[in-house]
Amino acid sequence: MNAWLERTREFWRRDQVFDFMLPPLQSRELDVSHGVVLYLENITVSFDGFKALNNLNLYVNNGELRCIIGANGAGKTTMMDVITGKTRPDTGAVFFGQKIDLTKYNESEIAAAGVGRKFQKPTVFENHTVLENLELAMQMNKSTFVSLTARLSGEQRDRIDEVLSIIGLTEQVYLRAGLLSHGQKQWLEIGMLLMQSPYLLLVDEPVAGMTQQEIERTAELLTSLAPRHSVVVVEHDMAFVRSIARTVTVLHEGSVLAEGKMDEVQANPKVIEVYLGEGY
């Protein structure tokens, strides 16, 4: 009943237009005149009364590499779901740049607007070759009728080769993605993000299950992306976070517990209290 009332009230708000009247999110121009690429304000998400996100506030600067840490269930993945349109927040605002209200668009529109996402569990198209994976992710017109006749231009092929060398999969270009190692899949997924030329990359636990060597390569890869892209990395591996982090945000029970340089955050008594005994 309450939710229904809320929705009715939402419907009549005078400062908003109806969803279906919104212009399609086609322009790829992002207004970052205030230097902030992502605003999350007072976000609350509850699942059956349990608040996975509780009044969360987070700002990501343009060109920044931001690390988010937090215990299991702190709400990190849920936060990404909210940004990418997979989950609608109960309350709060999500703005991409100054103008784009992300709560109004669906997953594919948000992706097309320039938000790329790497899932916690690596998801590449296993039955497609590495080349096809990158081709599918490439920034271009993605409507059905264009796809019917789309062919790779020389320029696009060059771009793919460039990304292949960034992610170190040049040799595997014609290999079926399902045959890649776990670490290679993770990189391929990051490569797919790069193909989308997003303004903002959301990377959920990129080094889970990687060998030490692979972790180091991934750290290099991610740090090389900023400041051309803004990057948000969620990670448990503290050594990894320390090696790439400039600013760290600690999530706890769905809200921000602390934010700052890695050393400051680790010295923060609140953080120590929450993590005490967890081996951090």
């Binding site: 992706a111 097309a112 198209f125 599918l136 993605k142």
Partner: peptide, 12 residues
């Protein structure tokens, strides 16, 4: 094979 990945690539 992976519908949500397709959506996050910007396809509908």
């Amino acid at each position: 094979d992976a519908e949500s990945r397709v959506m996050f690539c910007g396809y509908n």
